[in-house]
């Protein structure tokens, strides 16, 4: 397959390039190779969290609970270590402990026809309060660290290429394969675009929603473990920045590859753009809130562009 970089679907790659060149031009610190790789490392966690969210949005649902679930998993990690569970078991227990939260969202949506927004707001709140109960709302510091987990979070191959990013990249390529070559991928887009037609065709809506919510929670859980390792503590209330960064990345991503539809490769590039933006803003000493404003506007902008291009066609984004 030939890749045409000048197609509309690839505009975002150019945007990223321009952004990188722009920051590189004005800041020598930014253009250092290790900083550029640091951007890739720092986008990895967000990317991991939004993989499931991407598919949820594509299928016409939404998930606002992913940062809270990650926070919950991070404190579960710290707690497991505190009570003497070895790291090897902890990295399995913590992500699995997040799954019931995903199940709860799916259950509320599938069985009680909760709007996804309400269900995931409620689940987010449950996750945060559960996380707070573990250590009275305070961060719980890791009793000891694990070299293996540290290597996943901070390790660099050849002292440069972050291990974490490589793993995430591999995961995303696998996800892309699922998205484009299996019935699950096909059906979730069908659901997002025309629910009635999908149901008539016998697509099992509930099973798809359930599995993506479980996947989303599991990935948020894994990010939680990595978060705990990178902060050396479990944090019950991780800043809201993951939320807006993640959703903005998803909607930025929907502007590329499959125009107007959230998709995994788009989300990955979206996450890189967001990380580049945050990194550049920090390095240039621009107040961080400029980044917040920019991300908010970016998000509204993406949605606007998608909608304008879809005039006279049925809207597919969740409303």
């Amino acid at each position: 397959m030939r890749i045409n970089l000048f197609k509309r679907d690839n505009v975002l790659v150019w945007a990223l390039l321009v952004l990188v060149l722009f920051f590189s031009f004005i800041s020598p610190d930014f253009r250092r190779l290790d900083n550029l790789f640091e951007i890739l490392r720092s986008c990895s966690l967000i990317a991991l969290m939004i993989l499931g969210v991407t598919w949820l949005v594509a299928s016409g649902e939404i998930d606002v609970s992913f940062p809270n679930i990650a926070a919950f998993a991070s404190i579960v990690t710290a707690y497991c270590i505190k009570i003497g569970i070895p790291w090897g078991a902890t990295v399995v227990i913590a992500p699995i402990s997040a799954i019931p939260l995903g199940l709860l969202s799916a259950f509320l949506i599938n069985t009680f026809r909760f709007p996804a927004l309400i269900a995931t707001i409620a689940v987010a709140s449950v996750a945060t309060s559960l996380a707070s109960m573990v250590n009275g709302g305070q961060p719980l510091y890791l009793a000891h660290s694990s070299d293996v987990v540290e290597y996943f979070v901070y390790g660099k191959i050849g002292g440069l290429v972050p291990v974490l990013f490589l793993l995430v990249l591999a995961l995303f390529f696998f996800a892309k394969w699922i998205q484009d070559n299996t019935t699950v991928g096909q059906h979730l887009y069908a659901l997002g675009e025309n629910r009635k037609a999908s149901l008539e065709a016998g697509i099992n809506e509930k099973r798809i929603i359930l599995s993506i919510f479980v996947l989303s929670a599991l990935l948020a859980g894994i990010s939680g473990v990595l978060l705990a390792a990178s902060f050396s503590s479990g944090q019950p209330r991780i800043g809201g920045s993951f939320f807006i960064d993640g959703l903005t990345a998803v909607f930025l991503g929907s502007l590329m590859v499959k125009f107007g539809k959230p998709n995994v490769m788009g989300s990955l590039i979206g996450a890189i753009i967001i990380a580049t933006l945050s990194n550049g803003i920090t390095i240039l000493g621009i107040p961080f809130y400029v980044g917040t404003i920019t991300k908010g506007l970016l998000m509204a902008f993406c949605v606007g562009i998608t909608m304008l291009n879809r005039k006279n066609k049925a809207p597919q984004l969740p409303t």
Partner: peptide, 16 residues
């Protein structure tokens, strides 16, 4: 524009 996503965007921008 879709209400939920748009207001998340504008809300974040205004918070900034």
């Amino acid at each position: 524009l879709p209400d939920m996503v748009t207001t998340i965007g504008t809300g974040t921008a205004v918070f900034g």
